Simulated assay, not measured.
Amino acid sequence: MRIGLLGTVRTINPAVRPELHAGLPVGTELSAWPSRVGVFPATPVEQAMQAVGHLEAGLSAADAGVDAVVIDSVADYGFAALQAALAIPVVGSGEAGLAAAARHGRFAIVTVWPRSLNFGPQSLLQLYGLEQQCLGIRNVADEAVLDSLAGSDGYLGRVNRADGSIMSQILTAIDDAITQGAEAVMLGCTCMSPMAAKVAVATRVPVINPLFEGVKKAVALAESRAGNGADRPVTTDRADLVRRMVDAIAGEVDENCPVCVVAAEM
């Protein structure tokens, strides 16, 4: 079973998102399909640009023969367009993670990002009608972290290593959410996937890793689709036009989008 992760950067580590493999069926292969749109999604404008980048990555993954694709971002960049363009299953980590959290009752979202980036999960809560069930988004970082993302000593490197101070802030935020009545907590970014197991061990309510939920759902959908005949992997006649649009900006300097760069230092 081949699952393409859209937005994940290829890395010198041969295993893509190695923390996920223990919970997946034997033989599941995860492959990285980066967005070639290197803009940081700081506002809805850049978020829309990332939607095009993820669409183009999904078209490439489907052409390469993956069985399903997962958007490696809680913001689910390009979800609707990907579903319209591909014949294979398309899963959003945000969609799958929120659904898993909601099954436990009232839940909270805890994220390593500042409040300025909350528009992504907030839009999904509205889309799926979960605003009342969610007890809020708890941010463990201030805006200053956006100025020091890259490098082994940058904020993303610290998140990836589950730095002690960051872990402490996350656990404090989770305890506060539980005090307020949360019956589950969803991690608010797929970049938190490497620390998900450590957080879960230290927490007394279910901790939802949205990326794992997305991959698990993609595997199930791909398995149910197998044997029903091979559809064309791409169903849109706009694929070449999308690629030309992305080609126009693909050479710009990468702004270290957190959706993309975390895997590069695993």
Rank of each mutant, 00 (worst) to 15 (best):
M1S: 09
G4E: 02
G7C: 02
L30K: 00
A32D: 06
R36K: 10
G38Y: 11
A42L: 11
T43R: 14
V45K: 14
E46Q: 15
Q50W: 03
A61H: 04
D63L: 14
D63N: 15
V70E: 02
S73E: 11
G78K: 01
A81I: 12
L86Y: 10
S93V: 00
E95H: 10
A101W: 13
H104C: 14
P114E: 14
R115I: 11
N118C: 13
F119K: 07
S123I: 00
L124H: 12
G129V: 10
G136C: 06
A141P: 09
D153S: 14
G154Q: 03
D163Q: 10
D163S: 08
L171H: 11
D175S: 09
I178M: 03
V185H: 02
M186T: 06
L187V: 02
T190F: 03
C191F: 02
M192E: 14
M195A: 15
V201C: 04
A202Y: 02
V205Y: 03
P206C: 10
V207T: 04
E213Y: 05
E213F: 06
K216E: 08
L221D: 06
R225E: 15
D237V: 14
L241F: 09
R243S: 12
V246A: 08
P258W: 12
V262T: 05
A264P: 01
E265D: 06
